[in-house]
């Protein structure tokens, strides 16, 4: 297992290194236009641009600059944001924390709801509950977040006037302001996870060893909890891990709509404002989360299903 973990982590680091090189070449070299013009603006004179390039080391060879950037990044120096005129770390971490809060409450609801309904449906394939879950799941998953955000706003903000319309948290943390963005994310995603769980559970329930256990006279509860669940949870576990990845990018729409000051909105701002240092840092964080969750999924998959070995 230790070898597996080390190999997966090694692969993760290698992936990140390759992505970092691609990102650097795309964002921080002449490929994406003159960095000096991006920072100083179109009205800057050539002399000013040259001074800026010299001051910021842009006259050095690209690969020297790349390794310098990677070295700084690894030691926590993420550069200076053009837009915020502050260290990227000062801007990035609070925003990432806000998205982590949003993500935590989203998963805190998605996981139990999806697993409970998915397992119950899978246990009684074809039942009313199963059919209802399928229809509901398809319906909610097929409605994009921006549409459900408008729908929930029209009901709870403009109609019933129960909830605040935006989630800027400018007066400090307010859990009520989290309700609508979490609701939108949960409604969009729970159907998918529930249906995956249901499919996995239904498949397990038809397996020979479950039938054997039932015929052997084991209590139904014992069959489900001790034999079916562990195998049925392998697929949902992978799906849930991938949803963390989805959340980081998918949350952009929700954060934009509800003016929530999170990582997704920051990523959008960075790209719209040509803030290269911030964009690089956001992209690297997104890549780290993607490969990190994938690695965790691989390791967890192996633990849940000992028959699988990566060699």
């Amino acid at each position: 297992m230790l070898t597996l973990i080390l190999r997966r982590v090694g692969f993760m680091l290698f992936t990140m290194l390759v992505v970092s090189l691609v990102l650097f070449l795309l964002l921080d070299t002449e490929l994406a236009g003159d960095p000096a013009t991006r920072v100083l603006g179109q009205f800057a004179s050539e002399h000013q641009k040259e001074l800026w390039r010299e001051e910021h080391g842009y006259n050095r060879p690209v690969m020297v600059r790349y390794f310098d950037w990677v070295g700084s990044f690894v030691t926590g120096d993420l550069g200076i944001s053009n837009r915020y005129r502050a260290p990227v770390a000062e801007v990035l971490w609070p925003r990432l924390w806000n998205t982590a809060i949003l993500g935590f409450w989203t998963f805190a609801l998605i996981i139990p709801i999806s697993l409970v309904f998915g397992i119950l449906s899978g246990m009684r394939e074809g039942s009313v509950l199963d059919r209802s879950l399928s229809v509901t799941g398809i319906l909610t998953t097929s409605v994009p977040e921006f549409a459900s955000a408008v729908f929930f706003s029209s009901v709870f903000v403009f109609g019933l006037q129960w909830l605040p319309g935006t989630s800027g948290m400018t007066d400090g943390f307010d859990p009520v302001q989290l309700i609508l963005p979490v609701m939108v994310l949960v409604v969009y995603d729970f159907g998918y996870v529930a249906r995956m769980t249901r499919a996995s559970m239904a498949e397990v329930m038809t397996a020979q060893y479950i039938r054997t256990a039932v015929l052997k006279g084991l209590a139904y509860k014992t069959v489900i909890l001790r034999h079916a669940l562990r195998n049925a949870l392998i697929a949902p576990f992978t799906v849930i891990m991938l949803q963390i990845n989805w959340l980081l990018s998918g949350v952009i729409v929700v954060e934009f709509y509800f003016a929530y000051k999170g990582f997704g909105a920051l990523l959008l701002e960075a790209s719209l404002n040509n803030d290269v240092a911030l964009l690089e840092a956001c992209a690297m964080i997104a890549v780290a989360v993607a490969v990190g969750t994938q690695t965790l999924a691989d390791i967890g998959y192996t633990i849940l299903n000992p028959r699988i070995r990566f060699s």
Binding site: V157, Q161, G165
Partner: peptide, 10 residues
């Protein structure tokens, strides 16, 4: 978002 903030008194 601006409209929703106005409607909810934010």
């Amino acid at each position: 978002a601006t409209l929703a903030a106005l409607a909810s008194g934010q």
